[in-house]
Simulated scan of single mutants.
Amino acid sequence: MARIDLDLAHAYKPNPQRDEDYALLPLKMTFNDGGAYALLGPSGCGKTTLLNIISGLVTPSQGTVKFGGQDVTGQTPQQRNIAQVFQFPVIYDTMTVGENLAFPLLNRRKSQRGLTPDRIRQRVGQIAEMLEMSGQLNTRAAGLSADAKQKISLGRGLVREDVSAVLFDEPLTVIDPHLKWQLRRKLKQIHHELKLTLVYVTHDQVEALTFADQVVVMTRGRAVQVGSASALFERPQHRFVGHFIGSPGMNFLPVRWAGQGLDVAGRVLPMARNPLHGEGSFALGVRPEYVTLAAPEAAGAVPATVTQAQDIGTYWLLGARLGAGSGADGGEQTIRARLSPDQRIPRAGDTVWLSLVGPHTCYYRDDVLIDNVSDSSVEVAA
């Protein structure tokens, strides 16, 4: 295992001039030895390019890749000692499950001292047990389901103890949805037990937030935030993170400072101090989970007209319309709230008051979080 330091940019076309010309805009990033990381973002954001640069399948057009402080930018995946698991199974159908799991170890036997036949059997048994395949070690892979074959691929990536890192490129694509949940939990358990450095590419936020200790959120070739699941949810550093993380994502409302308070959709909320720290265009961000029903005229609340109320099962999703052309951007604003099913749920057409400002409110300028607003947010004046 090794600490991985990246200081690079990458473009597939020569002489890039604009941001749009880059698959990866300039970034500096460190993956610590033994950490579990996820690269999360929509298709085309650069996460697979970044993974392939780490593995050595792609050489960055600018900058360096270092493993354990050593520059490995020009080295192959074999020289970097990387294990990689792809979207679809990469196994030998003519071999048994046990032979497939043992193959990476047998390949390294000459170069790794202490890798005796007994140790190989022990390691294969350990990985098979973790993946709940102990009873299939003597089963030929050709007759197995796609799910089982991909579990073998995961095992082949995890079986070696001497790797610098194990890289996963959306490895659960072909897995049955029910089994996906089990394997996400299993990978988390395996990481805790084996202490391998794992880097996992996905566009599925549930996979990323379940598996990884640290998540790298990417968009348009840029890494916009690296953090834990709670940090990404509670304090998105970029509007894209607030939008992408959560179901549904964060509400964003244009706001402005109106002298004694915050103008939100035409209603001035009295504030003890200005949370915006300047003039210009700003956005208030608040997650649907933290939008609550309030008493009429309550401090920190705004009136809204309910447009829909949808029963999701464990909660109700309320859609509402704020203002009537007098907001900070001169237009009507919409907002979503997640409400508990055990409270009275308004119906479409009802007028409600929604509380927006509190400890979980975030403020953004030019899509970036205003960092010097404390976690306690800004108190509403009485």
Rank of each mutant, 00 (worst) to 15 (best):
S61D: 04
E279T: 13
G41F: 04
L293G: 01
L131W: 04
I54Y: 04
P275M: 14
P89R: 05
P303R: 00
V291L: 02
D367K: 15
I370Q: 05
S61E: 08
W181M: 15
G331I: 02
A212K: 02
P171K: 14
T292Q: 11
T48M: 00
T59P: 00
R80H: 03
H10R: 10
P254W: 05
T292Y: 03
D176R: 02
Q150C: 01
V159G: 07
R222V: 07
P60E: 01
E170H: 03
V352T: 05
W316Y: 15
Y315N: 15
G114C: 06
V268H: 12
A324S: 12
T64A: 05
S355H: 15
L253P: 10
N15H: 14
S134I: 03
L131T: 00
T334R: 13
E207P: 11
T307F: 01
T219K: 12
A102Y: 02
L269W: 12
S145I: 08
R336Y: 13
D19M: 07
L39H: 13
D350V: 05
S247A: 12
W257F: 10
V380D: 08
D33L: 03
L284M: 14
R123C: 01
M133Q: 10
D367M: 14
V159Q: 09
T292N: 06
L356M: 10
Y37V: 04
L40F: 09
V65K: 00
K180I: 08
M95W: 02
D162R: 11
R80I: 03
Q62R: 12
A328C: 05
Q333P: 07
S376E: 15
T116R: 10
G44P: 00
N372M: 14
N32F: 08
Y364A: 00
H243V: 02
V166R: 07
G242T: 10
T59V: 06
G157M: 06
P236I: 07
S247I: 11
P248T: 14
K151E: 14
L137G: 09
K195I: 02
D147E: 12
D367Y: 13
V65A: 01
G261S: 08
L232D: 08
P60Y: 00
E170F: 10
Y363V: 07
Q62C: 13
H238K: 11
T351I: 10
T139G: 05
A320Q: 12
P60R: 05
P296Y: 01
N274Q: 12
P89L: 03
A320R: 09
T307I: 10
P254S: 02
Q308A: 11
A146R: 09
V90C: 13
G323R: 06
A2C: 01
Y12A: 06
N81Q: 05
L253R: 06
V90Y: 07
